[in-house]
Amino acid sequence: MTGPSPSPSPSLEVAGLAYAYPDGHQALFGVDLTVGRGERVALLGPNGAGKTTLVLHLNGILTGGAGSVTVAGLPVGKKHMAEIRRKVGIVFQDPDDQLFMPTVREDVAFGPAAAGIRGAELEAVVRKALEKVGMAEFADRPPHHLSFGQRRRVAVATVLAMEPEILVLDEPSSNLDPASRRELADILRDLDVTVLMVTHDLPYALELCPRSVILSEGVIAADGPTAGILADEELMARHRLELPFGFVPSSVA
């Protein structure tokens, strides 16, 4: 659509994507979206707009609808699946789903180990990823014993360990207390990767992402600078998006 595509091979390119679940419910009705290399984009939209469905198309977990998804020039499909999965790092909303191994260390190691890294090199990758999110000293703890904010950070590390081309975060700020929310924001700001952030947390989007797109009724309904979108009251109301009480985007930007 109107999205700018600054780099010749953008991190992510979605064209005409449509998808219906096997129970007949159709979630996507032709999504077009381009995210350039190094961009941080917020994907906004009301509940049920198809955000999660879109995310699951980015690494080929859902396929078989109409349209195409391309990651760093590589079409998402059976042929390159392993590489696509490595390039697209999805951080799911519930860290209990994301952290499935018995200890933090093993969990972070899962992705690189699946890619064939072993021994000392694996340890180094794990340590580096955990250091990036400030969780290195928790390596041998079981995930169940961490606080929610810590689990969310470990979840980010599990994905960073795979050195992805694009980091996709599903509701990164949900269920976090304000301090954990800020700590996560600091971590995300310092990362040097393309970020696509699915969120209802509009101030968080404004804080971290210069650009936002609105997904509504299965299509991209708006695409532009975050501050501009949040200031457009009519557009926001049409897509069931509301700012928190007392929050004025222009006063922050």
């Binding site: 977990i61 697209v88 790092g89 999805i90 789903d97 992705g111 795979m162």
Partner: peptide
């Protein structure tokens, strides 16, 4: 969901 997270990481 866990399975999704697993395949997402290879």
């Amino acid at each position: 969901r866990v399975h999704l997270a697993m395949v997402s990481r290879g």
